[in-house]
Design a protein around this nucleic acid. Structure first.
Lengths: 134, 134
DNA sequence: GACGTGCGTCCAGATATCGGACTGACCAGG
DNA sequence: CCTGGTCAGTCCGATATCTGGACGCACGTC
């Protein structure tokens, strides 16, 4: 967990990633939508690329333009963002409800739930035990 | 999500929280196990308390000693940490596997999975759509 | 030629983090 | 009574990081 946070825990890293998930793959677009300093965002994107979470891909030859795309490792951060979002929706949402609502393919408003992959039951801290510690 | 990260996204915040989940509720204990600067940890714990994620509770009158306990909001951050942990286990684990292994009540090693609460299907980015944006 | 866009870099100042030393209250042993 | 240890922090000066704003440069368009 500590190692994960080293990559993804810096300010703006997950916010930039959220933009990529929402389909905003271009630098200026992200700057506009997030309000992050261009400098910081550029640095963040670089570490995300170096860590194999994003790829920087040229989508136009002349002029040279780049976009950022998720790798498989990047796509697998989706659950992290969803659980963060859900927590925020439940504990920080203002009077007018959560700012974004998603819908799942099944037709229902999306509420993400964490379960045990083996038995399918909802996961809670008190049902788990540490088996090994290094 | 941005608001959630403002509270929980600072360095050491989630690491401190992990310690509380593991049962290390005391200041010195956390310092020892995490290696965080005492200064920073003290500041982080303060914001976590102010945000209603932890409570500072006196467990000894004389000498005055305090411990940090999770509130309900704090306990509900469990899924966030589990998804972070799972990502790290999959993408960053060294040759000797993940550093910590948990077991679920059902007897299986714990692997956390995110599903749609409505239909129970595993959740992936491509199956979800944004309905409203503020 | 003037203007706009896309994708950055550079800089100086503010802010945060770092490790280590220190405080202050208490307890236990000799 | 004196020394040593635990606990929960605070204080400090040296780095590291983040910030907003200005700038660069290669195009494309009017």
């Amino acid at each position: 967990m500590a190692r994960t946070l080293e990559i993804v825990g810096e300010k703006w890293a997950l916010i930039a990633l959220r933009e990529v998930f929402l389909g905003n793959r271009r630098f200026d677009e992200m700057v506009r939508r997030t309000g992050a300093p261009r400098d910081t965002l550029a640095a963040r994107l670089k570490t995300l690329v170096r860590s194999g979470i994003l790829e920087r891909r040229q989508y136009s030859e002349h002029p040279a333009r780049y976009e950022y795309r998720l790798t498989r490792a990047g796509r697998e951060l989706y659950p992290v963002m969803m659980t963060l979002m859900r927590w925020g929706d439940e504990h920080l949402a203002g009077a007018d409800g959560p700012p974004q609502i998603f819908e799942h393919r099944c037709g229902h408003p999306l509420v993400a739930q964490l379960v045990c992959e083996a038995c399918g039951e909802p996961l809670e801290a008190r049902d788990t035990m540490l088996v090994t510690a290094e």
